[in-house]
């Protein structure tokens, strides 16, 4: 499969269809992957594709605005490209999506947390367990999975953990989140790794007005994590990158999933599903629920 990918990449670069291909290469440890930027035909051989290719490369597209980019994208990554297209952050003709059929990637976080060996940690990421499709919704070229493993989804209720938290008492929930957020070190990796976080100036970096404390204290941390989640309302496509990179292990997906669940219930909206659809918060319906308003 990888040979096919390399041939395609070489062809794209040769025909000047793209200026740059963003893909994966082997990291220094010889096992994991890391992002790879190929702009010359001779570098194409660096490209790899396997279960270690966890990163959502759509995040790099904002670095190359205006250029023609070929990007290797899993089905979940493609959803974030869809949102970027919906929000006019990207021109469709500028991005050549090399879609890959994906049957799940490893749980990199668990590996980092000290799973004994690679084999043990090669369980799939939590996001993969509720994956809905192993084939990208849009792409210019599709690499089929020859082994036809299909999606690894366990067809479980994807909001199970959200529901579990919802039924706990208000005080318990506050305690839970305060404990989690108190560890936040405000490294902003969750923001930097998110393809949807493209504000030229993040509210967290603003000094005038300063919306919340810059220091890693509980109040500032609560505000930051809450506002990050709110800003992703209707835009988060659950690529799970924020939770994966969080060095202190805050379960950020529980926040994202909660909003995802709410907007499904309230507005029947699903992020990253359709390029033609208007973004959730830039549109409205006359019959949106308003019974909670006095």
């Amino acid at each position: 499969m990888i040979d096919e990918l390399k041939i395609k990449a070489r062809e794209l670069l040769k025909n000047k269809q793209v200026d740059l291909i963003i893909g994966y290469q082997r990291a220094s440890d010889g096992v994991l992957a890391m992002p790879c930027f190929v702009d010359r035909e001779e570098d194409v051989d660096k490209l790899i594709w396997d279960v270690y290719c966890v990163y959502n490369l759509a995040n790099y597209l904002k670095d190359y605005a205006g250029q023609k980019i070929g990007i290797i994208a899993k089905p979940c990554d493609v959803r974030s490209i869809v949102v970027l297209l919906q929000e006019n952050q990207l021109r469709r003709e500028n991005v050549y999506i090399i879609g890959v059929e994906c049957s799940g990637v490893i749980d990199e976080k668990r590996l980092r947390l000290g799973a004994k060996d690679i084999q043990e940690s090669a369980t799939f990421g939590v996001k993969c367990k509720s994956c809905k499709s192993s084939t990208p919704s849009i792409c210019d070229y599709l690499f089929k999975d020859k082994e036809k493993k299909g999606k690894i989804s366990e067809d479980k209720d994807e909001y199970e953990s959200v529901r579990k938290l919802e039924v706990r008492s208000s005080l318990e929930r506050l305690k839970f989140w305060e404990e989690e957020f108190s560890r936040c070190i405000r490294c902003y990796a969750c923001r930097q790794v998110c393809p949807m976080c493209y504000c030229p100036k993040c509210v967290a970096d603003q000094a005038m007005p300063a919306w919340f404390s810059k220091g890693a204290n509980l109040k500032g941390n609560l505000s930051w994590n809450l506002i990050r989640a709110i800003h992703l309302g209707g835009r988060c496509i659950d690529c799970g990158e924020c939770e994966r990179v969080c060095p202190v292990g805050i379960p950020l997906r529980e926040l994202n999933k909660k909003i995802e669940k709410d907007i499904k219930e309230l507005f029947k909206y699903e992020a990253g599903a359709n390029v033609e659809q208007k973004p959730l918060l830039a549109s409205f319906d006359k019959d949106d629920p308003g019974d909670w308003i006095k």
């Binding site: 506050l174 839970f176 309302g233 909660k258 949106d288 308003g290």
Partner: peptide
């Protein structure tokens, strides 16, 4: 727009306790 935006916020605040 406000109605949509704050429906989400209201539920999220509740979720955070």
């Amino acid at each position: 727009y406000a109605r949509r935006r704050f429906a989400i916020l209201k539920r999220l605040l509740e979720y955070l306790g």
